[in-house]
C-alpha cells in the first residue's frame, strides 16, 4: 500500500472509532439519541453525556495517543533504539512523583495535573543536564543510563509518598493515578492539553527530514551537516513537553509510545515525513479503542494502563522475537 492510502485508511478508521465511541457508554443512549444530542436536541442529560462527557474523553484519548506516539517516534529515532518508550528519560516517573505529591497534599485537580507536568519536565531536565556533565562516553548511552537512574529515583520518591499516604484515602488515589485513566477528563483540560501537544509537535514537523539522520551514529550524522547535539536537545524538549502534558491529564499510560511507532514503521517505513502522521493517527486510534474498552468492557472502569499493557506487551514480545531472528 502507498503511504497516502495507509494514512487515509487509518483516518477513516479513526473516524469510525469516534462514531462508535460516541454511541457506547454506561449511560444508555440509542444511536438516534446520540445523533440528536450531537445536534443539540433531545434530552439535556443526553446532550451532557455526548458533549461534556464522551466527546472530551474521546478527543483526549486521540490527542494523548497521538502525542505519546509522536514522542515515541522522536525518542526511538534519537536514541537509535526501536525498543525505547517516551518515558525513557524519566518523564513518566517524574510526573508520577509530582501527581503523588499533590495527592498527598490534598491539592485540587488543577494542581495535581500541574505538579505532574512540572515533575515530568523536571525529571527530564535533570537527566539532560547530568548527562551533559559526563563527557567520557557515548552521549546516547549516557542519556539512557541517566534516564534510568533518575527515573528510578523519582519512582522511589513515589513509593515513599505511598508509604506516607493515608492508606484508606490517598493511597488508592495514587495507585489509580499511576495506572492511568481518562475517566476524569473534561472539556476544561482539552485546550491546554492540545496546545502543549501542538507546541511540542511543531519542531518535529519542521525538522522531520533532519530527525531521520539522528538514527545514524552521531559522527556520521554530523559529517552530513547535522548539529547532532542541538537537534537532540530540541527533540528532547519537544517530546518531553508532549509526554508530560499527556501524562499529566491521564496518569501513566505505558506501551503506546513504544508499540505504535513500531507498527507505523511496518506500515510506511521509517522516513519521518511519512511516519509521523501515520504514527499519530495510529496512536490516537489505539488509545481511543483502549479507552472505549476501558469504559464499556466491564461494569467498573478498567484502568487504562492495564489495557494498553495487555495489548502492548504481546506486541512488544512479538517484535523482540522478530528482531532476534534477523
Amino acid at each position: 500500500m502507498k503511504p497516502p492510502s495507509v494514512f487515509l485508511g487509518l483516518l477513516l478508521l479513526l473516524l469510525l472509532g469516534v462514531l462508535l465511541a460516541l454511541s457506547v457508554g454506561k449511560f444508555s443512549l440509542s444511536v438516534p439519541e446520540v445523533v440528536q444530542a450531537l445536534l443539540r436536541q433531545g434530552s439535556e442529560n443526553a446532550q451532557t453525556v455526548v458533549w461534556n462527557v464522551r466527546l472530551p474523553r474521546i478527543l483526549a484519548a486521540i490527542v494523548v495517543g497521538a502525542a505519546l506516539a509522536a514522542a515515541g517516534v522522536a525518542y526511538q529515532g534519537m536514541f537509535r533504539n526501536p525498543l525505547v518508550a517516551p518515558d525513557i528519560l524519566g518523564a513518566a516517573a517524574g510526573a508520577g512523583f509530582g501527581a503523588s505529591l499533590a495527592i498527598l497534599l490534598s491539592l485540587p485537580i488543577l494542581l495535581i495535573q500541574g505538579l505532574a507536568f512540572v515533575g515530568g519536565m523536571l525529571a527530564v531536565g535533570l537527566v539532560y543536564f547530568m548527562a551533559q556533565a559526563v563527557r567520557r562516553h557515548d552521549p546516547v548511552l549516557v542519556l539512557v543510563l541517566t534516564g534510568v537512574a533518575v527515573g528510578t529515583l523519582f519512582s522511589s520518591g513515589t513509593s515513599l509518598i505511598k508509604v506516607l499516604a493515608d492508606p484508606s484515602v490517598q493511597l488508592p488515589s495514587i495507585t489509580f493515578w499511576l495506572m492511568g485513566g481518562l475517566n476524569g477528563v473534561t472539556s476544561k483540560e482539552l485546550p491546554l492539553l492540545t496546545g502543549l501537544v501542538g507546541l511540542g509537535l511543531i519542531p518535529l514537523i519542521l525538522l522531520r527530514w533532519r530527525i531521520n539522520l539522528l538514527s545514524l551514529p552521531d559522527e556520521e550524522a554530523a559529517s552530513l551537516g547535522v548539529h547532532v547535539g542541538r537537534l537532540r536537545l530540541v527533540l528532547i524538549v519537544a517530546a518531553t513537553l508532549m509526554t508530560s502534558a499527556a501524562v499529566a491529564v491521564t496518569g501513566i499510560i505505558g506501551w503506546v509510545g513504544l508499540v505504535v511507532p513500531h507498527a507505523a514503521r511496518l506500515l510506511v517505513g521509517p522516513e519521518l515525513s511519512r511516519l509521523l502522521p501515520v504514527a499519530m493517527v495510529l496512536g490516537g486510534l489505539f488509545l481511543l479503542v483502549a479507552d472505549t474498552l476501558a469504559r464499556t468492557a466491564a461494569l467498573i472502569e478498567i484502568p487504562l494502563g492495564i489495557l494498553t499493557a495487555a495489548v502492548g506487551v504481546p506486541v512488544f514480545l512479538a517484535l523482540l522475537m522478530r528482531g532476534g531472528r534477523s
Binding site: 457508554g25 444508555s28 474523553r57 475517566n183
Partner: peptide
C-alpha cells in the same frame, strides 16, 4: 462487589444518586 474503583461521570448521570457524600474539600 469489591474494593475501590474509578467511575465515569456518565455512570453517575445514569445512577442519579439522591445524596452525594464526600470528605474531600476540593
Amino acid at each position: 462487589r469489591g474494593g475501590l474503583t474509578r467511575v465515569s461521570f456518565e455512570q453517575l448521570l445514569s445512577w442519579q444518586p439522591d445524596i452525594i457524600l464526600t470528605q474531600d474539600a476540593q
